[in-house]
Amino acid sequence: MKGFRLIHSVALIAGLLFLYVPIGILILYSFNASRLVTVWGGFSTQWYASLLSNQALKDAALLSLGVAMASATIATVLGTLAALALERARPGRAKLLFGGLIAAPMVMPEVITGLSLLLLFVALNVERGAITVTLAHATLTLCFVTMIVQARLATLDRSLEEAAQDLGASPWRVTLTITLPLALPGIIAGWLLAFTLSLDDLVIASFATGPGATTLPMRIYSAVRLGVSPEINAISTLLIAGVAALVVTASLILKREKLIA
């Protein structure tokens, strides 16, 4: 309030407009009766209806959801373990090295991660498809989960764990009854992030998949290369709505948790 001047509100509004207008236009034209994306021909939900009859798109969506759930779950388990390790380890060379290794996939260009995984899968002579994409996505998203869970663990009062131990809980039980429940908001957020990153990924999936398995972003990408179409707007709108609902719910949960903690 004090110090919140006109210039600040201008910056805020301009910034948010920049972020949201393109998405708004995209959503708007998904309800366009005209096939021409730039000409408004009246309100219609026909493109949503036509999505339903597009079997290839539906298959791709199901595949992507399955891959996203599986890879997010693997990444959450491994990422949480890594976060616990980083939080517990004494400072030193080993911890620094491990932290660096965990963070590396995050800064590695996607094209390189994708290429290298493909080489691995070819060398191992495994059939590429949903499973290889899941493995690839778990590798990519693990570090994001670690980052979020570790941030949460860092805010935990160390004396809570000591108190539990003092009250007779073995280290294993302390982790199970105190550390993990308190880190849960971070773990949930980590899972969600891994899930959406997997759902979003085009590059790594393109490398890691085989002829039989096409993910939703791959389908959208090949459609986009052919040009703009209201059907893509419709599927995009559905994706945006789904993710937005997920994120808003999650942030409400986190907020409630925060009130308690």
Binding site: V77, A82, A89, L101, S116, L119, A138, P171
Partner: peptide, 30 residues
């Protein structure tokens, strides 16, 4: 000392995973 041992146990699985799906593949690119 004890906490460090537990940290090592927790680190094992993610370490192996990244070795197999990140480090090794990159060496193959090299």
């Amino acid at each position: 000392m004890r906490t460090d041992r537990r940290a090592r146990i927790a680190a094992l699985a993610p370490l192996l995973w990244l070795a197999a799906f990140f480090v090794l593949p990159f060496l193959m690119v090299l």
